[in-house]
Design a protein around this nucleic acid. Structure first.
Lengths: 62, 62
DNA sequence: TTAATATGTCAAAAGTTCTTTACATTTCCA
DNA sequence: TGGAAATGTAAAGAACTTTTGACATATTAA
């Protein structure tokens, strides 16, 4: 599912590793999601949205 | 994860089975999610939100 | 009350997410 | 240019979601 993690993450001045740590998942997980290799669980989607200071609907646009 | 599926579904005049069909999943899946036995995939969360005419963030509140 | 509809739940199987470890490539800046 | 930091990717396994089929209970309407 298409997402805006890259741009939102950059805007927040975070590396994949920093975002991963804030979400308490591995760097590879963030990388895979950012590059659309698979979708996160709903829980992780919410965590990412919170850390990036926005909504799930905004991060993952249909 | 807590959610408002029951009330939104009722407001929309839908049974679990009707909502399931609109989302193209089984009735048991909707039942399990509504009763918080497990969280849907992100894809299904979006589908549910669309069918219930609202956002993922509104359906699944943290 | 009876019949039909709606909901709750179980178990097994299939499919997906996420982790860890490991290594390759790219970017960037001193 | 060289070295460090950041990113991309792979494989195996643990954990979770969803399906199907089945049966029980609850609710509603005739």
């Amino acid at each position: 599912m298409q997402n805006k993690i890259f741009e939102l993450r950059k805007s927040a001045g975070l590396t994949q590793d920093m975002l991963a740590k804030k979400c308490k998942v591995s760097r590879q997980t963030i990388n895979a999601i950012e590059n659309d290799r698979y979708d996160p669980t709903l829980q992780l989607a919410f965590k990412i949205a919170v850390v990036l200071n926005t909504t799930v609907d905004n991060v993952f646009k249909k």
